[in-house]
Design a protein around this nucleic acid. Structure first.
Length: 302
DNA sequence: CGGGTTTGACCGGCGC
DNA sequence: GCGCCGGTCAAACCCG
């Protein structure tokens, strides 16, 4: 009964990426963006064969976004813990997002929302970790510092993108601040920070060593500004113009009250219209990602 | 010259 | 306490 209505529903038919294609953004293969889902008791994208799905397919799956990968509002933190048994070499036995949750449990005075409010305090987390450094050349790194409180992380989530390109364009400007070799992987992990002042969004990019055609992009935090005027003279007016950012905003909408931001995040409302339930979705760790990649690869193999 | 990248060192959490 | 490891810093370097 609802199907015909849905067909006529502009929101149902709305494709936030219409107009964006390989000719518009040849560097961004958005059709190969794979929405990663955290290991969950049930497949997050039910009805699909693989553990992840085409991004645009996901957009048009009404139930897709209504199934949380990981519900921060849940009560149990052991939802994902057992899965980490599969992570043979990772000592990171608990996902960071879970840690946040655990920390909040231990410290009830810490509001849960503090981890997703970068618009007015997005740099707070980072600032707290830099208080002993700043611009001064304090080479006294070995000086005993007062034991700082456990740093709260911004909410994170990751995307798997099937692409040959190592660094995907997402419309924002990033500055690389580190690169590390990934254990048991020939591919390094790169660390990026948003170059916009007072925007503490970070992202990590690495290529899956189990499926080198897949790039894993992990976003931490959400932008408190628009996409800057971008490449090739195109001015991307919506911060959600790119799939990564769309999901980022969808999962972790900015708390900004600026009208401009509200307008620019119309895509959020579309998503919200679809399920009207704000869920906090989280990312899993790389072990899980790699497990998913490998399992999917196995499934897709002839 | 300003902004971005590279890369070795450092820090801190965690498991043993 | 020690070692491992992820994350970050910052000097040096590169580039337009």
């Amino acid at each position: 009964m609802s199907s015909s209505n849905e067909k006529n529903d502009p929101l149902y038919n709305y494709d936030p990426f219409q107009g964006f294609n390989s000719s518009t953004f040849p560097f961004f293969d958005y059709n190969n963006l794979l929405v990663y889902s955290q290991a969950a008791p049930t497949p997050p994208f039910q009805g699909l064969d693989s553990s992840y799905m085409n991004f645009t397919d996901c957009l048009h799956d009404q139930n897709c976004f209504s199934r949380p990968f990981f519900d921060m509002s849940g009560s149990s933190s052991d939802v994902v813990a057992p899965v980490h048994d599969n992570i043979s070499n990772s000592k990171q036995t608990v996902d960071d997002s879970v840690r946040i949750k655990i920390d909040n449990t231990e410290n009830p005075s810490t509001p849960n929302s503090s981890v997703s409010s970068p618009s007015n305090g997005g740099t707070a987390v980072e600032d707290s970790s830099k208080t002993n450094k700043g611009s001064e050349h304090e080479k006294s790194k070995k000086v005993n510092k007062p034991k700082k409180e456990r740093q709260q992380r911004e909410p994170r989530f990751a995307f798997l993108t099937k692409t040959e390109i190592d660094v995907l364009e997402d419309g924002y400007r990033w500055r690389k601040y580190g690169q590390k070799a990934v254990k048991n992987s020939p591919y390094p992990r790169s660390y990026y920070r948003c170059t916009t002042q007072k925007c503490g969004v970070k992202k990590r990019v690495e290529r899956s060593f189990q499926d080198p055609s897949v790039v894993i992009t992990t976003y931490e935090g959400s932008h408190n500004h628009h996409i800057p005027t971008t490449l090739r003279g195109n001015n991307i007016t919506s911060s959600a113009a790119f799939p990564h950012e769309f999901l980022a905003h969808y999962f972790f909408p900015s708390t900004s009250n600026h009208q401009e931001d509200q307008n620019s995040m119309q895509h959020q409302s579309v998503a919200l219209h679809q399920h009207q339930q704000q869920q906090q979705l989280q990312v899993s760790d790389y072990g899980l990602l790699h497990n998913l990649v490998s399992s999917s690869t196995r499934k897709q193999a002839p």
